[in-house]
Structure formats: C-alpha cells, structure tokens
C-alpha cells in the first residue's frame, strides 16, 4: 500500500528520464496559454508566450521536477529551432518584391537601429553600476537566441541571464511597437514588422506574423539582419 504511493510520488522524477514528459508539459502549456489568452480577450500587454511560460514554470515547480531535467527533455523541441529559423527564409522569399521596394530604407535603418538597440541598454545598465558580466549578458538582448548565445559566450556573459533578458526584451518590444505605432501614427505593416524583428527577435517575429504575412516577412528580415550585423559588430565595439 505504501509502496505504490511512494512510487506515485516519485513519478515526476521517474518519468523525466525520458523527454516525453518535458515535451508533453511544454505542448500542454502552449495550448493552455493560448486558450487563456483568448478567454481573457487577447490583451496586448500579456502575450500568450508569457502566459504559457508562467503556466509551465508553475507546473514544473509543483511537480518538484528539477529544472535541469526539464531542460534536457525539452531540448528535443529546441533542436527544431534551427530548421524553424531556416523556414523563415520562405516568407522572406515570398515577400521579396516588398523588400526590394524598400531596400534603401532597410539598409539605412538597420546598422543605426541595431547598434542603438544594444547601446541604449548598455549605457543605462553601465550608468546604474552593472558589472561587466551583466553588461556582456545584456548586450545581445535584441538578437535571436541561437546567435545571442554565441555572442554572450564570446563576450564573457552569463547565458541564463542573457536568455532572461532576451525574453523580456522580446515581450516589451512587442508591447512598445504596438504602443508606439499608435503614438507615431504608423500603420505600414512593413515598418512595424521590421521594428518587431529588429528589436524583439523571435517573440516579435511571432507577433508580426499575427499582424500579416508582410509584417512577418519584414520581421524575419529584421531579425536575421540584426543577428548577422550584431554578431559581427558587437565583439568589436564591446571591447572599446
């Protein structure tokens, strides 16, 4: 009688030996987060990714599951991020005529805006007394995760702190783009998408695809170009 009960209690630990539990929890939280999001009337300030992440963190903590064990199982999903990044090349191609029409503004805006995205944060953090390690973790905050990991390691920052900053940046960038668009009276999907991808990497790009395929394509472009540009420039600038 006590045997099966103790086996039941240790079930989260036993099951997390296989990635199925972590994957199941992630899928469950993803759908639950989206359902809650629709139920509470799609508020802009609380995107589904945050709802899902909070739910997932709560369930993982309640099950007494080790975060490392969860991460190992969920790694199977993270592997798909590579092919998914490649998939962004397809809307990019399909929207090429829009991009061609705007290549000049893109070329002018990108280096300035991508540099500013890092510099603003670095100057604020530095003036408030952040350590070099924290600065190195914040610098790639607008860059898509796979590239940002490489940059942070190169600069000597902390990857978990960087991932946290990345998420917060993605969410607030999504919010601020929606707010600022109304404020500056900008309704051009191409500009909104570009700003979403440039500042809010994958989170912003996911939001841009909700606006329209054109916005999504420009977000993919902004995300990709920012990633490439920042990866090349930041290590040079940071050591100055």
């Amino acid at each position: 009688m006590n045997d099966w009960y103790s086996r039941l209690l240790s079930l989260p630990e036993t099951l997390s030996a296989s990635p199925a539990l972590a994957i199941g929890l992630t899928f469950g939280a993803f759908f639950a987060g989206n359902a809650v999001f629709r139920r509470i009337g799609r508020p802009l300030w609380l995107p589904p990714v945050v709802l899902s992440a909070v739910l997932l963190a709560a369930v993982v903590a309640l099950l007494g599951m080790d975060y490392k064990a969860y991460q190992q199982g969920a790694h199977w999903l993270t592997v798909l991020l590579g092919p998914a990044t490649v998939a962004l090349g397809i809307p990019l191609y399909q929207q090429m005529h829009h991009i061609r029409a705007l290549w000049r503004p893109i070329l002018v805006t990108l280096p300035i805006a991508a540099t500013l995205a890092a510099v603003y944060a670095l100057v604020i953090a530095w003036s408030l007394g952040a350590t070099p390690e924290v600065l190195a973790s914040l610098a790639p905050k607008s860059v898509t995760a796979p590239i940002a990991i490489g940059i942070t390691q190169q600069l000597g920052g902390s990857v978990p702190l960087m991932m946290g900053g990345l998420l917060i940046t993605g969410v607030v960038a999504t919010l601020f783009v929606d707010l600022a668009a109304r404020w500056l009276a900008i309704s051009d999907d191409r500009i909104l998408g570009f700003a979403l991808g440039l500042n809010g990497h994958a989170v912003g790009t996911a939001r841009a695809f909700e606006i329209s395929p054109t916005a999504g394509a420009f977000a993919s472009l902004g995300m990709g170009l920012t990633g490439v540009f920042t990866a090349l420039i930041l290590p040079l600038v940071f050591h100055l």
Binding site: S52, A84, A87, P160, A206
Partner: peptide, 16 residues
C-alpha cells in the same frame, strides 16, 4: 514550423 515558433522558444523562456 513558423506557427509553432513560440512553442519552440518556450523551454528557453521558462529558464528565466
């Protein structure tokens, strides 16, 4: 794949 982009970044997000 693009429609589940959010799903794929969630494991990293939860780390926060």
């Amino acid at each position: 794949l693009i429609s589940v982009l959010v799903l794929l970044i969630m494991p990293g997000v939860v780390g926060v």
